[in-house]
């Protein structure tokens, strides 16, 4: 991918597909590293599927037999000397606490580090496409934190106005943009 933010969009789509009620997208940066954690409360994966999930020839898609999303993120992290981890508890195994957690660690000063890119755009795209599920986005940087929680927006908007109403989408976009600008001004 050209930007890590596109991997974020891609991996979070898996969470939504797994019927997550809440998908958390947490980015933690310090001087040297960027840690990406995507956590959901979806149906999770069975153990044997989980074991194969970093293999490109493992996929849920029905249109072809290759799935690149997870192997790609793993490769991109490891290319920088970083690491990758994916844990999952299936709904079958634990009906109370299930879901998937994907973590990738990147070394930012490595030449193969792919820049984060337009992460706001990925968050907006996720909400636009999946207005009925919740997303928590938190980006922690040394200079401060950018955060958006759709549960808070939903509490204000109620049931009548969907989150993908254009004016709401625009508000979300502007809110993220302003938060980043405030940190960097």
């Amino acid at each position: 991918m050209k930007e890590l933010s596109l991997n974020i969009l891609d991996i979070a789509e898996n969470s939504v597909k797994a019927k997550a009620g809440l998908t958390e997208i947490l980015i933690t940066e310090d001087e040297k590293t960027l840690k990406l954690l995507i956590r959901d409360d979806g149906t999770g994966m069975e153990e044997d599927f989980l074991k194969r999930v970093t293999d490109p020839f493992c996929t849920t898609r029905t249109t072809r037999k290759v799935g690149m999303g997870i192997p790609l993120l793993k490769m991109e992290a490891e290319m920088t000397g970083g690491s990758f981890r994916i844990d999952s508890v299936s709904e079958k195994k634990d009906p109370e606490h299930h879901g998937t957690e994907t973590e990738a660690l990147f070394y930012k000063d490595h030449i193969d580090f792919i820049p984060l890119g337009d992460v706001q755009s990925s968050i907006v795209t996720l909400i636009q496409g999946h207005p009925d599920t919740d997303f928590l986005f938190r980006h922690v940087m040394p200079e401060g934190t950018v955060e958006l929680d759709t549960r808070e927006l939903r509490a204000v908007l109620g049931d009548e106005v969907p989150l993908n109403e254009y004016e709401v989408i625009k508000w979300i976009e502007d809110s993220l943009k302003e938060q980043y600008e405030d940190l960097h001004s």
Binding site: V156, E160, E165, E178
Partner: peptide
Amino acid sequence: KSLEELQAIK
């Protein structure tokens, strides 16, 4: 951006 703005949109 404030949540009041969101209220107005609603």
